[in-house]
Design a protein around this nucleic acid. Structure first.
Lengths: 224, 224
DNA sequence: GTCTATATGCCGATAGAC
DNA sequence: GTCTATCGGCATATAGAC
């Protein structure tokens, strides 16, 4: 990750990560954190600069405008969660079933969204607040991530894991909504993220309905 | 639209609805429409006033501040969808099952959210943008609406319609996310709202998984 | 690369005439 | 109840010194 440009010459290679974030990168990270906390319009360039120990005018050496900053923050947010989910799903054993695949992808998405990166949650938070041109420029990347999920589900359907009769495009929209809305209510202290992910995966895989057969029962401990 | 004020004295009682929106009401409706379209911070009192054929200063005769306006818009948004869903669910025949109950409630919520009222979609759109005190003042009403859905599901569980092992509080959060996110992608021209509602209800009731038994099959037309 | 200083403009809100 | 006029403040963005 990160650009880490410049340092070409001396290139002191100590502490290879979290090292000497150049100003450009620090501005982006600060912007993501403040956008996430305060929203787009309420975050001023003065505030971003202050948190970088700079003055507002200096930002314009690195970025042409506030819109350019927010555009890059949006893109990074999607790219990071996209990469994380792709990597996690690729690492699953071949033939992994619907419920486990969903659980893995959902937990990874939620982890990036709720715990890991300011960029990802800032993205969800401010997506509806940015100027329309910025939003439209960002749409292609976002659409690519959505299509990745659709393709994932299509693969599971071809293996007979998903019933016919549901529009998988819409299913992904529903799923994204359920996941992204968690920014509004999830409380890390109340329940582990793995539990939340697992429950959403169960809901999407099996539904709420009590089954008549014993196949889908989550508790095979014969009680009743 | 336009002024229409003055009718104080004569009070002609014709056209009992859509009649003579007093300025206060017109300001609220205009604000809801602009908040929905442009977001909270980007909507200025000058723009609201202009769409009401007024000047910005005149708004302060009816409202003490912008925050007071947005607070009322938020509350109206939840109250309308709440009333609509409660009324629709109450009208269901006693003993209506899980899938049909969900379909009814979901479709009514989505209809209010996506088609009927600027207030409802403005609520979802700007909820994350308003100043914290406004948001906290609004939280109680919103929480009441969420608890209504939880109670609805608890009733269905007691009747044996819902499997054990899922936290219904979280289920409602998931469901709200799936529904409210539709403001970001739903296109009236592409698919009827009833289809979207039906598909979400099916997803939540039965899940994606292909069943081994024939009970839950949506297509009993024996083909394969 | 960062600074100071400032141009330019719009915002929410208020005062007082009508 | 609506107007005009304006206050005080803060925003983005720019110009030029260091």
């Amino acid at each position: 990750m990160a650009t880490l440009s410049k340092r070409t010459a001396t290139a002191s290679p100590d502490t290879p990560e979290a090292v000497a974030p150049d100003s450009r990168q620090m501005i982006l990270e600060t912007a993501a954190r403040l956008f996430r906390r305060d929203g787009y319009a309420a975050t001023t360039l003065r505030a971003i600069a202050a948190d970088c120990d700079m003055k507002a005018g200096s930002i314009y050496y690195h970025f042409a405008s506030k819109d350019v900053i927010v555009a890059e923050v949006l893109d990074i947010g999607v790219r990071r969660v996209f990469d994380a989910v792709k990597q996690a799903v690729d690492a699953l054993p071949p033939g992994t079933g619907l419920a486990d695949t969903l659980r893995c992808a959902i937990e990874t998405h939620l982890r990036a969204l709720l715990l890991a990166h300011d960029f990802t949650s800032a993205n969800i938070r401010i997506l509806g607040q940015v100027p329309l041109p910025v939003r439209e420029a960002h749409r292609a990347l976002r659409r690519r991530y959505e299509r990745y999920w659709v393709t994932l589900l299509e693969g599971l359907r071809q293996r007979g894991e998903i019933r016919a009769g549901s529009d998988l495009n819409r299913t992904v929209f529903f799923l994204f909504g359920a996941m992204n809305w968690a920014t509004e209510w999830y409380d890390e202290r109340k329940s582990p993220l793995a539990v939340v992910a697992s429950e959403l995966a169960d809901l999407v895989a099996h539904g709420l309905h009590s089954h008549d057969n014993t196949t889908g029962q989550p508790k095979p401990t014969g009680l009743t």
